[in-house]
Design a protein around this nucleic acid. Structure first.
Lengths: 211, 211
DNA sequence: GTCTATAATCGGATAGAC
DNA sequence: GTCTATCCGATTATAGAC
């Protein structure tokens, strides 16, 4: 009975193989985008025959959607790190720090997002227009409250968030360039820690009202 | 004699057609990257038969190299906007402003650069490791001189430049996302002017030593 | 569930008439 | 210089044996 489970989810081997395909897909999509990626290359990196890949994920698009789905889920959980705290410095430092940690922990996710945006966001457009837009609006209100209280300088909240997103994601999306400018070596943990602290500090100094 | 010039450069029609292919290539490479782009789609957008494209640019890679070549040239001319002036605020404001203007004037160039970095920079790697690295080193010295004089706060110059690059290029690379977050409308000239001013202001406040 | 073989289509590039 | 017709390798996906 258990040797040939009709429902694949029962098999532990399935999960392992599915994950290796999934991970390989992430790396190929991150490098080459949806159109540039080939199922042959994904299968090669996963170490499975191409037909096997199509058994687990019927089409290239289904695989791509599964990958983006996971990225949006991860984004949602990280977005909550921006809590409505009373102290803007503390809240912003936590948020920017979390974004830097994400870029470090999952650079591929950031790159797939970037690539999807570059091609016009056909798959995640709805997410951008609904979930992301709502999130941004709600945070905008918090920022404006801080401004009204004189806790931060007056800024246009949207452009302020774009700066945070751009700067933090840059460490993932442009890792190739950063490495090339670092004598060919990826940033060490120590270097990244310095960059992380400096990004937080510069962002805060840029927006906090001088005492 | 002139009706069938042996050297194509003699023909004015050639320049027009070459440019339309070149421009179409820029837009397709910016959206889909080198691998994702197809010569058929480039020819379609240029309004020429595919074979005609291959007459002017023998291979897809030759066309891509011509496109990147132009981007590196544009970068070099913009890089000089960071002059060794005595006043850091003035020099940095000019540089950041110039970068914002570039992102607005030529978003495609920025996107092609981003896409090239995402795939590991096979074509511009040498440029990154030589020209760009040297430029960064020389500017780093200027920044350190300003720090020594107490004109700006102590920062790691490299990460400071990464923030400038990331933030300014974000307006080109993530235009799709920014538009989606702006009720589906691209930033107007007025909105962009606000963003531009705010980016300059925030960067300066983040690094300038409080008086 | 797995994987070799293959169908069907796409994409880069060229031949050769005009 | 231009462009239709076409070659041929690459690519997505499936058939069908195991």
């Amino acid at each position: 009975m258990t040797s040939h489970p009709s429902r694949p989810s029962r098999s532990a081997g399935r999960e392992v193989k599915e994950k290796s395909i999934f991970d390989a897909a992430r790396s190929v999509f991150a490098e080459l985008g949806f159109r540039g990626a080939t199922t042959a290359e994904i299968a090669r990196r996963a170490g499975v025959p191409k037909a096997n890949l199509h058994y687990y994920f019927p089409t290239k698009e289904a695989l791509y959607r599964a990958v983006t789905e996971q990225i949006l889920t991860a984004w949602l959980s990280a977005a909550s790190s921006f809590d409505e705290q009373d102290d803007p410095a503390q809240a912003l430092a936590a948020y920017v720090g979390a974004k830097m940690d994400m870029a470090r922990a999952d650079p591929l996710g950031s790159r797939i997002w970037a690539s999807e945006i570059l091609r016009g966001a056909p798959v995640i457009r709805d997410f951008l227009e609904t979930t992301l837009a709502e999130w941004l609006s709600s945070r905008e209100k918090i920022i404006r409250r801080w401004m009204d209280r004189g806790q931060i300088r007056p800024v246009e909240p949207r452009y302020f968030f774009y700066m945070i997103w751009a700067t933090t994601q840059h460490y993932a999306d442009f890792e190739t360039q950063i490495t090339a400018l670092n004598r060919g070596k990826p940033l060490s943990d120590e270097q990244f820690a310095v960059a992380r602290a400096q990004v937080i500090d510069t962002v805060l100094r840029g927006i906090l009202a001088p005492i």
